[in-house]
Design a protein around this nucleic acid. Sequence first.
DNA 1: ATAATATAAGACCAGAATAGTCGTATTTAT
DNA 2: ATAAATACGACTATTCTGGTCTTATATTAT
Lengths: 134, 134
Amino acid sequence: MLQLSKKVGYALIALRHMATHPQDRIFTAREIAAACNIPYELLAKILQKLKKSEVIVSTQGMRGGYSLLKKPDQIQVSQIINAIEEEKAIIADCYADSKENCSLYDTCTIRTPLGKVQHNLDVLLESTTLDQIV
Amino acid sequence: MLQLSKKVGYALIALRHMATHPQDRIFTAREIAAACNIPYELLAKILQKLKKSEVIVSTQGMRGGYSLLKKPDQIQVSQIINAIEEEKAIIADCYADSKENCSLYDTCTIRTPLGKVQHNLDVLLESTTLDQIV
DNA sequence: ATAATATAAGACCAGAATAGTCGTATTTAT
DNA sequence: ATAAATACGACTATTCTGGTCTTATATTAT
């Protein structure tokens, strides 16, 4: 519960691997998988998602691979999470879908405060960048 | 991902229901379930966990039920989560279990920073209390 | 041109976690 | 005694996740 998935963990480890080497280097998925002991096929999909989210760039074909698009201090943890866990609300929405179900009042007073918690969480994850993890 | 479970949501909704009524009232699980449109058996187990974690108190037998043990501003969101999701790490640990797996260096540099994120998350959830959600 | 090496993409499966149900025991007021 | 409530644990079904496999496409070396 409220735990980062293994995929996000793998993403962080892989990005860290890239960040701790010269910035212009190109890394193949296979190389990172071997170095970090991550299942290759799984990592390949993770890297593809990171590419779609413009965290890294790829060059296809022989001698291809991936490299960081931004500097580590420009890559937010929230961005990495969102790249892999495509767009879910961090905090659950209110489950009651009509006024009568849950509340005697007209205004839903649980959705908004939960949203605040979510927002605070967002801010926290946005303010943490890759360089703080490397 | 990084989403509160439905159970935690139900717990929050139920506690909110109790907090918006006179503090000395006793609520039956069935009453709350009906009012908040939550499956009764599921809510019953949730309330039992909240009782074990001393968020609410119960009186057994006929005319029994549950009532808040503390005032809403004394009930932390983190306490509610922990009551239901028995003791899990919020942020993933480092998955590499030996030096060779992940890093060229001796010290694991990913565990500690992630721990910082986790700590910030803990602080956030501890500093949010039920009264802010009601 | 052809072969080799790489990303790209999607189907597929197994195991874990979650949500929800059911049955039964126990407590207590009437 | 009986009715109404909590207490507790087994069970099921569904969803999520991690991981694998297959195929297609792009690029480069030869």
